[in-house]
Computed example of a mutant assay.
Amino acid sequence: MCGRFTLTRDINAVAQAFHVPVPASLQSGARYNIAPTQNVVTLMENGSTHLDLLRWGLIPSWAKDESIGSKMINARAETLAEKPSFKRLLRSRRCLIVADGFYEWKKEHGGKTPMYITMKDSELFTFAGLWDTWKNADGEQLRTCTIITTDPNELVSTIHNRMPAIIAPDARDAWLDPELHDEHALVPLLKSYDNDAMQARPVSRLVNNPQYDSAELIA
């Protein structure tokens, strides 16, 4: 699964990296311990590619209450096209969640060690995501998302049996394309990322507590 990640660049650096404008109303600084139910920076398509904020933890439009969101932080790539709640979103409500690292916990003698996984070149990357809009009893809308997971590459397999599906730069436009609805073209994009492009190292166990959110977590 993917339960924590980082985005240590501010919103202006993110916008510059993906060649999109900075929304005047969107503010986001360095984040070192992004956790479920928090807002995440996403790339979305609505006539043009733009940055937006979604809450992490999918609440499907048909849900009776928002508590389901904490249980739907991830969706398995292998079953997206089979499950009704995900199949609809795969066809029409896809997004990219922006990150520059993520955490997985490695089982070792004496407990679990948090491992911080990044690109070797330290560049930003994007998780494949699905999103939906949910209305509460008062009619207020809440937009939420889930991160898709897939089989791990060789590096991540030594740490965990799943990894987030990272969309390659040359496939981002296809993933966001609102005219692309063919699951047979979309699912193959959700493969494990190039092992040689990534690196991992142990970090502070302070990351176990989502209340900690500072650079010391990855020092």
Results as ranks from 00 to 15, higher is better:
residue 3 G to N: 15
residue 4 R to I: 15
residue 14 V to T: 05
residue 16 Q to G: 07
residue 16 Q to T: 14
residue 17 A to H: 14
residue 25 S to M: 03
residue 27 Q to A: 10
residue 30 A to H: 01
residue 33 N to Q: 14
residue 34 I to S: 07
residue 38 Q to W: 06
residue 38 Q to L: 08
residue 38 Q to M: 09
residue 40 V to P: 00
residue 44 M to G: 13
residue 45 E to M: 04
residue 49 T to E: 08
residue 50 H to Q: 04
residue 52 D to S: 04
residue 52 D to F: 04
residue 52 D to L: 04
residue 52 D to E: 14
residue 53 L to F: 13
residue 53 L to Y: 08
residue 54 L to K: 10
residue 56 W to F: 06
residue 57 G to A: 02
residue 58 L to Q: 10
residue 59 I to R: 09
residue 59 I to W: 04
residue 61 S to I: 01
residue 64 K to S: 12
residue 64 K to F: 07
residue 66 E to Y: 11
residue 67 S to D: 04
residue 72 M to S: 00
residue 75 A to R: 11
residue 75 A to V: 08
residue 76 R to P: 08
residue 78 E to G: 06
residue 78 E to F: 02
residue 80 L to T: 00
residue 82 E to I: 06
residue 83 K to N: 12
residue 84 P to T: 15
residue 84 P to S: 15
residue 86 F to L: 03
residue 87 K to I: 00
residue 92 S to G: 01
residue 95 C to S: 08
residue 97 I to R: 12
residue 98 V to S: 10
residue 99 A to G: 03
residue 100 D to L: 02
residue 103 Y to H: 05
residue 110 G to K: 09
residue 110 G to R: 04
residue 110 G to N: 02
residue 111 G to L: 02
residue 115 M to E: 00
residue 117 I to P: 15
residue 120 K to M: 08
residue 124 L to P: 07
residue 125 F to L: 03
residue 127 F to Q: 13
residue 129 G to Y: 02
residue 133 T to D: 10
residue 134 W to V: 09
residue 139 G to D: 03
residue 141 Q to S: 13
residue 143 R to D: 09
residue 143 R to N: 05
residue 144 T to S: 14
residue 144 T to V: 15
residue 144 T to D: 07
residue 146 T to W: 02
residue 152 P to I: 05
residue 156 V to E: 10
residue 157 S to V: 02
residue 158 T to G: 04
residue 163 M to T: 12
residue 167 I to Y: 07
residue 168 A to V: 01
residue 168 A to C: 06
residue 169 P to S: 12
residue 171 A to G: 04
residue 171 A to V: 01
residue 175 W to F: 14
residue 176 L to G: 13
residue 177 D to C: 03
residue 177 D to V: 02
residue 178 P to T: 06
residue 179 E to F: 01
residue 179 E to M: 04
residue 181 H to N: 13
residue 183 E to S: 13
residue 184 H to Q: 15
residue 189 L to E: 06
residue 189 L to P: 14
residue 189 L to K: 09
residue 192 S to K: 12
residue 194 D to G: 01
residue 195 N to A: 08
residue 196 D to E: 11
residue 196 D to Q: 09
residue 197 A to P: 01
residue 197 A to I: 01
residue 198 M to E: 04
residue 203 V to N: 03
residue 205 R to G: 06
residue 205 R to C: 02
residue 206 L to S: 15
residue 206 L to W: 00
residue 207 V to Y: 07
residue 208 N to W: 04
residue 210 P to N: 05
residue 211 Q to T: 05
residue 212 Y to E: 13
residue 213 D to H: 02
residue 215 A to M: 13
residue 216 E to Y: 03
residue 216 E to M: 10
residue 218 I to W: 09
residue 219 A to H: 12
residue 219 A to Y: 08
